[in-house]
Design a protein around this nucleic acid. Sequence first.
DNA 1: TAAACAAGTTTATAAAATAAACCAAATATT
DNA 2: AATATTTGGTTTATTTTATAAACTTGTTTA
Lengths: 94, 94
Amino acid sequence: MFKKLDPLLHSELRLAVMSVLVNCEEADFVYLRESTGATAGNLSVQIEKLSAAGYISVEKSFKGKKPHTKCRITTTGFKAFEEYIEALKTYFNR
Amino acid sequence: MFKKLDPLLHSELRLAVMSVLVNCEEADFVYLRESTGATAGNLSVQIEKLSAAGYISVEKSFKGKKPHTKCRITTTGFKAFEEYIEALKTYFNR
DNA sequence: TAAACAAGTTTATAAAATAAACCAAATATT
DNA sequence: AATATTTGGTTTATTTTATAAACTTGTTTA
């Protein structure tokens, strides 16, 4: 009847991050913070969770002399996102 | 950019309960438990939260000699449900 | 009469979400 | 030059949540 909602995606901020990454292929920490409106601390934690799950890849480097964190969605993450949408539909298409 | 997701609805079980009630106008505890697959304890807690928020009304009585809990969605709840859908869309607009 | 069942509720605990505090380096200010 | 502020984060602490387990109250069944 109702499909289970992936707990990793069923979180406001993580969903927002994934939503950005689905549409832009690559986004850095600052862009994600600004586009989601999240605090840096919260974003840092949620990026780590998505990364640990293999839903996004994270690349840390230096841009000039400042740290720079680039994120992109993985194929696993993309699939999970699509499945989450399918699952959500079972709560509405009736 | 992203609309805030009503925390009362952004919960798997509460969303399932609301989803049932949107479509059937009245449902009792047992029916909700069976149709959502939830445990009674969890359902009891979440029904109480939805009720406290004014999203559903709860009517307790006896059916024969057994307790009987009837739930229905309120207009407030219905509005909140629709707004939740609208908010969700901002995470998927493509 | 005791065991099992029904319909819930209460309580305990693990997991999440989030903000606050922190850090190291760079840049701006006095 | 010394101090303050900003940048780009991370770590820690705290409050909420979600959830299952245990419990309650009463009923039916063996």
